[in-house]
Design a protein around this nucleic acid. Structure first.
Lengths: 198, 198
DNA sequence: TTGTGTATATTCACTGGTTAGTATACATAC
DNA sequence: GTATGTATACTAACCAGTGAATATACACAA
């Protein structure tokens, strides 16, 4: 087992993240990543066995920070469940108004690599979205919502829909519209009987 | 004014559409498109001034047929407004279960070209989605819904969200879940007073 | 009917640049 | 003196776009 040089590896992932997110995966060459990381391509290939491997590392590094951000926005919001979920959308809208914002890296990667269904990076993206969905589901279940998985998936659909739509139109207000829809769905679910709907 | 050779041009767009949709825009070379169309690259460049021009033509060719399909699904569905909108999602789920399905070409293009915000192809995609949104808005307005634009945008968010999520997970059942959410939102909007909500 | 000019349409062969990945050698640490 | 880590220099393929020549069709004059 080789002991990997973590600072170097981390520096490469950081450079790759910035370039892949800003320019697109197929647009960015391994040479560019190496140059941005301040080392040669050959060194990069010492730490990563292929470009695909590097792409997977780029998304893996985004997994936990992204989830933590969503959880923080939820936890710090005032109000009940609908307001706390809607706060995620409001915070996301604020992020999306930053000029460097370019959508969701996981979704954009799955769109760009749609011809390679089993690609490691796509698997990491799918796992990331599943974790978010499961966190929402558990949160809804705690609140006694009748079908927490379905509601979690509907919120996820609105969230990922707003990533896609805002990227296309460059109009972050769609995220607030999605937040209102999420609020409506949650309020409707809360108004239903706790066990199973009839 | 040159008289363009329409059959040749159409054949190129057809070849480009299949390749760009299946493999991704940056993955596909102009040589591949020319080969698939049965002519040389130089001939292709007689009909299109650049690859970007060809990408724009690929999406422009999908605009009207896609909209017509949605309108047909809506028109042919039984039941009231919620059921007719939900029918769009059900039909989309059926399409998405086809093994060659790879998401929404407009959204995937905007994801792949996110580093080129003003790209002609992105403009065509944005216009396409606006047309769909406006058709929904007009339909909702006819039914006396209080805020038809907001509801239309929420349905669009669910639709584009299902494109993104189903592409990532390769699980078309998310489209049916999105359809249920759409139904809930429309039923809630129909239950509200017709003019403005208080 | 035949010749000729012109715009449309197509091909071959090429350029200059880029790309993922590698063979080999060298450095550094312990 | 051996593991780890870095750099130089290279390959073989690919890629967007172009220069120059040619083929085809059709209008119109002789």
């Amino acid at each position: 087992m080789p002991r990997p040089s973590e600072p170097t590896r981390a520096r490469i992932v950081q450079a790759a993240s910035a370039l892949f997110y800003n320019e697109g995966i197929r647009r960015v060459s391994v040479d560019e990543v190496a140059a941005k990381a301040g080392l040669t391509k050959r060194t990069l290939y010492y730490h990563f066995k292929s470009k695909d491997d590097l792409v997977a590392a780029y998304l893996a590094a985004r997994d936990q920070p992204n989830l933590a951000l969503f959880r923080t926005w939820f936890a710090e919001a005032e109000g009940g469940l609908p307001a706390k979920v809607e706060a995620i959308f409001k915070n996301l809208a604020r992020s999306a108004r930053h000029p460097k914002w370019k959508g969701c890296g996981f979704l954009r990667t799955s769109a760009e690599l749609a011809n390679l269904p089993g690609h490691p990076a796509i698997r990491i993206g799918a796992a990331h979205k599943k974790k978010f969905e499961d966190w929402l589901r558990a949160t809804f279940a705690e609140q006694g919502i009748a079908d927490p998985l379905k509601l979690a998936r509907q919120i996820l659909l609105l969230l990922d829909g707003s990533f896609a739509v805002v990227l296309l139109h460059r109009d972050a207000s769609y995220m607030e519209t999605a937040g209102e829809a999420a609020r409506t769905l949650i309020e409707t679910a809360l108004a239903k009987p706790r066990r199973k709907r009839g």
